[in-house]
Simulated assay, not measured.
Amino acid sequence: MKRAGLGLVGTALLAWACTGGPESLPPPTIVGVEPASLPVNAKDEDVTVRFDARYAVAVDYGAEKVDARMGSGRVWVDDQEAAVTRFDPTGVAIATVPRGLGAGAHAVRLRLDDGREAVAEGALTLSPPGKEDVDPPILADGGVLIATDGGPIEQCRDAGVCNEEDGGEPQDAGPGPEDPMREGDITAYVFDSIEGTRVSKVAFDITVRAQGPRAEHFQGSVELIASRGTVKPAKIGPCDAGVCDATIVMDAPAGNVHLNAVDSFGVGGESNTFRLEPK
């Protein structure tokens, strides 16, 4: 059975050799670019180019060995060459996006060592700073929105103790810890710094802190969104006095990543950028 298998490979190689060289092989095909969109001039952002390619093989019939002639490759975005940080000839190239490219759609070009090329027109979109390329995710936890202030109204002339006989101006005592959160109570979320390199599919701890006039009252949950790949759990909470501690697992190709936290009112915050490496 082993010799029969080698015979089939030898026939395929002979068919290639008769045509005169590697130019008889079909060109590679780019099947995807991840992520498909990034901010303009984002520092050290990587893209993953996934491709299909066929290669020539050499057969040693005496030793019964098959040697697939696979090399490396290069990547361009438009006419600017990208620095390749990882190249797997079976179908994955990771490259750092060149700085200085303008906003809009850009072509991604892959060239193998033997000169064969593939181009994906408009595969990478660069957006101006502050512009969202996609609609924000729909959050499952809508919370409770109170349009009016539920706190008590008291009449006081001064900062002293109020009583029914005091004829001063009405003053709003404000909501307490048990009152529902309202729009504007939380103004942002801040991540504790995520230091060092993290490993894909290996759990690590994060802390997210609510900011705003009622940050210490916040006991809800927030959605987590990864800049590349996935993060689990996708929602963390309940938080304790505005502090959300969680253990998460990320799954994404090697490169720089960051996390976003968003609550039910659309208020969000972004972590620092950190490196993610394969397990």
Rank of each mutant, 00 (worst) to 15 (best):
Met1Phe: 10
Arg3Ile: 08
Leu8Phe: 13
Val9Asn: 04
Thr11Ser: 07
Trp16Gly: 05
Ala17Cys: 02
Thr19Asp: 13
Gly20Met: 06
Pro22Cys: 02
Pro22Val: 11
Pro26His: 02
Pro28Leu: 11
Val31Leu: 15
Val40Met: 09
Val47Cys: 03
Arg50Tyr: 15
Arg54Ile: 07
Tyr55His: 13
Asp60Ala: 07
Glu64Phe: 05
Glu64Val: 02
Asp67Phe: 15
Ala68Asn: 02
Gly71Met: 03
Gln80Lys: 15
Gln80Tyr: 10
Glu81Gln: 15
Phe87Lys: 00
Gly91Ile: 09
Gly91Gln: 05
Ala93Thr: 08
Ala93Tyr: 09
Ile94Gln: 01
Ala95Ser: 09
Pro98Ser: 05
Leu101His: 08
Val108Tyr: 04
Arg109Glu: 03
Leu112Trp: 03
Gly115Ser: 08
Val119Asn: 08
Ala123Lys: 02
Ala123Thr: 05
Thr125Val: 13
Leu126Ala: 04
Gly130Ile: 03
Gly130Arg: 00
Asp133Phe: 09
Asp135Cys: 04
Pro137Ser: 06
Ile138Lys: 14
Asp141Phe: 14
Asp149Ser: 11
Gly150His: 10
Gly151Ile: 00
Pro152Asp: 09
Arg157Gly: 15
Val161Arg: 12
Glu165Leu: 09
Asp166Gln: 13
Glu169Asp: 03
Pro170Asn: 12
Pro175Ser: 08
Pro177Lys: 08
Asp185Met: 03
Tyr189Thr: 07
Val190Ala: 10
Ser193Ile: 08
Ser193Lys: 12
Gly196Phe: 10
Arg198Trp: 11
Arg198Asn: 02
Val202Thr: 14
Asp205Pro: 15
Thr207Pro: 07
Gln211Ser: 09
Arg214Met: 04
Ala215Ile: 13
Ala215Thr: 13
Glu216Lys: 15
Glu216Ile: 15
Leu224Thr: 05
Ser227Asp: 10
Arg228Leu: 11
Gly229Asn: 14
Lys235Ser: 08
Lys235Ile: 10
Gly237Val: 08
Cys239Lys: 12
Gly242Ile: 11
Asp245Tyr: 01
Thr247Lys: 15
Thr247Met: 11
Ile248Gly: 02
Val249Cys: 01
Ala254Tyr: 00
Gly255Ala: 04
Val257Pro: 00
His258Asp: 06
Asn260His: 06
Gly268Thr: 01
Gly269Leu: 03
Asn272Leu: 03
Asn272Gly: 06
Pro278His: 04
Pro278Phe: 01
Lys279Met: 06
Lys279Thr: 07
